[in-house]
Computed example of a mutant assay.
Amino acid sequence: MLQTFRISLMAALLVSASPALAEYTTTVISDELEYPWGMEMLPDGRILVTEQTGALRIINTEGELVEEPIANVPEAWVEGHGGLFDVKLAPDFADSNRIYLSYACGTRKNSSTCLARALFAGDTLNEVEEIFRSSPGREGSAHYGGRFTFLADNTLVMGLGDGFDYREQAQNPENHIGSVVRLNMDGSIPANNPFVGLSHAAPETYSYGHRNVQGIVYDPQSDRLYTNEHGPKGGDELNLMRAGANYGWPLITGGVDYNNARITPYQQLPGMTSPLLEWTPSIAPSGMTLYRGDAFGDWRGDFFVSALAAKKVQRVRLAGNRVIEQEDLFTELDRRIRYVYTGADGYLYLLTDQQNGELIRVTPKGEHHE
């Protein structure tokens, strides 16, 4: 069982007080985005940004937000936590022009998390195709997950949520509630998924026992997959993913309910995987990147976890399965940070969670940018 690294309030304060390894400058590229959620950099330097309110936007190479949203985007169900979520270029985008989008779909009485793919044609999407819809649908508008990434074997994994009111179902691998699913690029089921052929589990399921997966990163150098997820009041987690594993929610957690009631007396149980790192008090993790760029040499190989409630990005350094260093970054912005992204240029990019949402570029201090 993995050793869990828990942060007490005093430890968190000590982390915040540690000096930065790298000095940086933050520059607001755009402050005209409406609750931005995900982003992806195009090969020509333009940036795709999803707005939770349902629009897919382009920021051009001059840093200007193109006035008209991209047309023919799948219709997202926008309410509560629902909306348009993540965007990713297909690994073969240079040849296929294909992009992938995740979003909430359905109605308040019957909503799910959907994944679609389409051909990117500049100002519109063509051949839009829904390739996955989580099952069963549920009532309400909370905890959809929605982050996804691609693996080296031409499959993709997407994190889902427990729907808030359905948390016990996260322990039921027969459905997609509170799970991570793994799909082929066309939405079909990989033959080597851990539960294929079993009558008691959904064949798309890669892992289960999650509350609300909000960050997901694949490291091709180590062939490891990592996620982060919201706990309740406390108990946010950074997890190393293993096929077929049960991550314990709601039977194990370091958090309590929002009324301070104890959810479970257990923080570890046999057969359940504990997190690499747990945040109590909650930081509300919202995105994650593994930095492999060249602009910040001191940060290479570190994880960056964006946080909503804590209004920061947490830098996390691992040695194997052990957390050896943490640092609070960008607290001076005083912004709920929805996403942190490593650009092809080696810089970090931040999206802020607000109606006049910002795209912020992080560069080494002293570098000059027009």
Results as ranks from 00 to 15, higher is better:
P136V: 05
V196N: 09
N154P: 04
G231Y: 12
S286H: 09
E327G: 00
G106C: 12
L269V: 09
Q326E: 15
P250T: 03
I99R: 01
G63Q: 01
Y35Q: 12
V73F: 13
G38S: 14
T25K: 14
I177D: 03
I177W: 05
W77F: 15
M185S: 03
V78N: 07
P136L: 01
Q171F: 01
R292H: 11
D162C: 00
H368Y: 11
A295H: 09
D353Q: 08
F304H: 06
H369W: 05
Y208F: 14
M185V: 00
Q171V: 04
F195P: 07
L350F: 08
F85G: 05
L13H: 11
Q355K: 15
L156H: 08
G83E: 11
M241P: 02
E130Q: 15
D334F: 09
Y218L: 03
Y100D: 03
G244S: 05
N228K: 02
T4I: 13
N126A: 13
E237I: 05
S141Q: 14
Q214V: 01
G187A: 04
L290G: 06
P285W: 08
G271T: 08
G301C: 02
I216H: 10
S102D: 12
V217P: 06
V340G: 01
T149Q: 13
P270L: 09
A20K: 11
T61W: 07
V305G: 00
D162W: 02
Q214H: 05
I131S: 00
F296L: 08
L33D: 08
P232Q: 05
S18I: 06
T289F: 04
R317D: 08
N356L: 14
T205M: 08
G215C: 10
Y349V: 04
Q314P: 00
V217T: 12
L290V: 06
G301A: 11
T107N: 14
G231R: 13
A201Q: 07
Q268G: 00
F148M: 03
F150V: 10
